[in-house]
Every structure is written in structure tokens, then in C-alpha cells.
């Protein structure tokens, strides 16, 4: 494959205290894929994303984004944390949260200007939340909060997006809308790395997959990686209920509608 590597992880080991949470993980993510990171609870999925972003220190190994350490590539990376990681009672509104995605471009001390507000509003419109711009964030539903987080990542206008469970706690409509959005981003040449929990939809939504359980189990195109053997390795024989590589034939989700075309 001659596509450049959007993300490259080598021999990454991460431990909280003495307990290793990621052991010697290798990963290569080519540019332009829509990738799921899948693994059981406590597998280290969130930790992997946080380590890539430099939020958790690594004990060994290295991370490269387009060939450079993260600190040199901040502009290229957009981040969607787990929704539960922030306090939604914070006194601010949806637009303000989206604006936070632009703070790095704005720089220290300077305030967001009109131009930045417009960008944030456009971004809210892309996730169908334009009319909620002034809404206090605690008065948004879980799915709406998730969309605000997505809008915040979109406004970063990144090349690589890291998303921690963007589908957690959203209804089927929002899930379809998010998938459509992810596909649009992929079509625009972005790379998307998404922590995902629903094995049923892996083949349908994603084209690239990493199975993780403390160690790297397998990664690559979904068709090659999403096999019963690999799943058993990742989950330890507890996954009788999924049919690997049958997701796209289930037909339980029609072709996702674009949020853009729904006009909010």
C-alpha cells in the first residue's frame, strides 16, 4: 500500500502504576480509512487514544502522526472524548463548546472573533444542531451532546480524527446521522479512528478494524480481521452471538441519510 500512514504506533506499552494496560502494541493506520477499535471493557481502547494524544504517558514505544510526534502534529488531529468525561452542567452553551475546537488556532489570550463564530455555527449546522447554538448544554439530550462534541471536532478541520465511543447512548437516528457524517469525512480524505462497542455493526460501518485487548490482536481491512478466531482471541470465547463478516447482509440499517440533507 503506498498511501501514507496517518497513524503509526510502535511497541507501545502503557502502565497505570505497575499494571500494564497496553502491552507492546503496534498499529499502522493508512490515510483515508474509517477504522473501528474494538475490544472488551478495560481492553485499553480509551487509553490507546489518550496515549496517542499525549494525555497519558507511555512507558515505552512511540507514536507517529504522518511521521511526526503528536506535539508537532496537533493541528492535524481532532478529538472526540467520551461524552461522560466532562461536566455537562458547566455554565455555557453549545456554540461555546464548539468554539473550543478552535482555541488552538486562536492561540493564547486572544478571543474568538466573528469569523470563528461563523465557523462554529457552520459546524453545528453540519450535525443538524444549528438551532441549538444558544442552548445551555445541560438542556441537551445525550445524543445532542454527542453531536455538539462531533461539531467541535469538525470545526478543528483535522486530518485524523480520534473518537471515543461517539455512538454511546445515542438513538438509531443519531447513529445513522453520525455514520453518514463519518463517511463524508472519509470521502474528503480524512482518517477516522473510532472506539466502537457494537460488533453487529462493525462490518457495515467501517472498512478498517483493530481488535485490542491489552495486546494488539489484529488490525487491517475489516474483511480480513473480523474473523471468529480473532474475535475469540480478543474476547476470550464470549462472542457466540455475532456472525463475523455478515454485518452488511443484516440489512437492519438502511443506507444512512446525510445530516446535511435533512436540513436540521
Amino acid at each position: 500500500m503506498d498511501r501514507p500512514l496517518a497513524l503509526e504506533v510502535r511497541d507501545l506499552t502503557v502502565a497505570y502504576e505497575e499494571k500494564p494496560v497496553l502491552w507492546d502494541v503496534d498499529l499502522e493506520v493508512p490515510e483515508g480509512v474509517l477504522m473501528a477499535i474494538v475490544g472488551p471493557n478495560g481492553a485499553g481502547k480509551s487509553t490507546l487514544i489518550k496515549t496517542v494524544l499525549g494525555l497519558v504517558p507511555s512507558a515505552a514505544g512511540q507514536v507517529r502522526i504522518y511521521g511526526q510526534p503528536y506535539a508537532r502534529r496537533r493541528e492535524l488531529v481532532g478529538y472526540v472524548p467520551q461524552r461522560g468525561s466532562v461536566d455537562w452542567d458547566f455554565p455555557t452553551n453549545a456554540l461555546d463548546v464548539v468554539l473550543m475546537g478552535l482555541y488552538r488556532k486562536i492561540g493564547w489570550i486572544r478571543r474568538p472573533a466573528r469569523r470563528e463564530r461563523e465557523l462554529a455555527l457552520e459546524s453545528l449546522a453540519k450535525v443538524g444542531m444549528a438551532e441549538y447554538a444558544d442552548r445551555q448544554i445541560s438542556q441537551l439530550s445525550g445524543g445532542q451532546q454527542q453531536r455538539v462534541f462531533l461539531a467541535r471536532a469538525l470545526v478543528q478541520d483535522a486530518q485524523v480524527y480520534l473518537m471515543d465511543e461517539p455512538f454511546a447512548g445515542v438513538d438509531a437516528t443519531t447513529e445513522r446521522a453520525i455514520v453518514a457524517l463519518l463517511r463524508e469525512l472519509r470521502a474528503a480524505g480524512k482518517t477516522l479512528i473510532v472506539v466502537h462497542h457494537d460488533l453487529q455493526t462493525v462490518s457495515e460501518y467501517f472498512d478498517w478494524l483493530m481488535l485490542l485487548n491489552v495486546r494488539h490482536i489484529a488490525s487491517g481491512p475489516v474483511a480480513e480481521v473480523f474473523t471468529a478466531d480473532n474475535l475469540r482471541d480478543a474476547y476470550g470465547g464470549r462472542v457466540a452471538f455475532v456472525t463475523p463478516n455478515a454485518g452488511s447482509e443484516n440489512g437492519h440499517l438502511s443506507e444512512p441519510q446525510s445530516l446535511l440533507s435533512r436540513g436540521g
Partner: peptide
């Protein structure tokens, strides 16, 4: 007044603040 934006970000979402280099 000077660091209003940074204080707000670091209080609301320290993870993003760190990721963005603040």
C-alpha cells in the same frame, strides 16, 4: 480577563485542553 478562554477550556474539558496544547 486575559486567560478567560484558557481557564474555561481547562475547567470544562482538561483532556481537550491538553490535546490542544494548553
Amino acid at each position: 480577563l486575559l486567560f478567560y478562554k484558557e481557564l474555561k477550556l481547562a475547567t470544562f474539558d482538561p483532556g481537550l485542553a491538553a490535546a490542544l496544547g494548553f
